[in-house]
């Protein structure tokens, strides 16, 4: 009783919330927006054709015409880095949508139906046990390296994480008296699931989605870097770095520029995810009522 009093007495105001979140997420949102805009308008922004080779211009240092220099085929590094954002973002968003939709569906079923749960969770445990990069590499190497197989290969290992989250929320929520009350009111099971249980997953899923997105972009870069990603003809951050590996001692910036772009992109997404979590954290929500 005393506990409840304390909670009731100190609601967190919206201003405090804003103070908690701070400036980092705002900067992150700006950086991410810039990256997205650069990807969409790449043909207009990039100073050169990212795949046009020019043997004369190999491995040139930065200059007015080539702000970041050129690579070993004489291609403009800046243009390649700008175009590289496209694959990363498409994969990041695509994987997030697929993993969240599939994970939500499977997780809801698993959390609500005991019989299905046993089987589903064994499969998910198995998927979790396989290192995601290895699994993705195996899938891509067998099925060929198109953007679709890469996307599928990255999605599969992400699904169990979403399923586990959704399932645990459903398991907790179904013990809530308001869910029991709904059952007592004669509400059908699918409707209980839809109306009373699923909305509980939205806030945590939003947070999880940002982490899935960051992880997908990272895995894509690793696949490309190891040579198991989309074809080397398409510039991706991972591909650019992979090709520059042998010149690393000579031209370290060939690797570090795309690496910086990649890191900034993932960092922004993670910071937004952390901010979302700070705002949506169910424990903070409880304190607020």
């Amino acid at each position: 009783m005393a506990e409840k009093t304390m909670r009731g007495a100190f609601p967190l105001s919206t201003r405090q919330l804003a103070a908690r979140v701070g400036a980092a997420p705002i900067i992150a949102a700006v950086v991410l927006s810039l990256i997205i805009l650069a990807a969409i308008f790449a043909p207009f922004i990039a100073p050169h054709d990212p795949i046009l080779q020019d043997p004369v211009m190999r491995l040139k240092p930065p200059s007015g015409d080539f702000p970041l220099g050129t690579d070993n085929f004489g291609r403009d590094l800046l243009s390649r880095v700008i175009y590289g954002a496209r694959v990363s973002l498409v994969i990041g968003i695509g994987v997030t949508i697929m993993a969240v939709v599939l994970g939500l569906a499977i997780g809801l079923v698993s959390g609500f139906f005991r019989t299905a749960d046993a089987i589903i969770m064994r499969i998910m445990d198995g998927l979790m046990a396989m290192p995601s990069v290895l699994l993705a590499i195996a899938i891509v190497s067998l099925m060929g390296a198109s953007i679709w197989t890469v996307m599928a290969a990255i999605t599969i290992p992400e699904i169990p994480r979403v399923v586990r989250l959704v399932r645990s929320i459903v398991l907790t929520a179904r013990e809530e008296p308001y869910v029991e009350a709904a059952i007592a009111l004669g509400t059908s099971m699918p409707r209980v699931l839809w109306r009373h249980l699923m909305p509980n997953t939205f806030a945590p899923l939003t947070v999880q989605a940002t982490y899935v997105c960051a992880s997908a972009i990272l895995t894509e870069a690793i696949l490309s870097f190891l040579g198991a990603g989309v074809s080397t003809e398409t510039p991706t951050w991972g591909n650019i770095m992979a090709e520059a590996r042998i010149y690393f001692r000579l031209k370290p910036m060939l690797i570090l520029w795309p690496g910086l772009a990649l890191s900034l992109c993932i960092l922004s997404i993670n910071l937004l995810g952390d901010a979302a979590r700070d705002i949506l954290d169910p424990r903070m929500g409880k304190r607020e009522d």
Binding site: E176, P177, Y178, E180, A181, A182, A184, L185, G186, T187, S188, R195, H196, P199, D289
Partner: peptide
Amino acid sequence: LQMVFQDPYRSLNPRLTIEESIIEGPVNY
């Protein structure tokens, strides 16, 4: 048969208005 639960803070779905909670049962029938 209907039930009233112990914890008043958890027995109503926080995302539904009072009216939505009350009419849920009759609408089901």
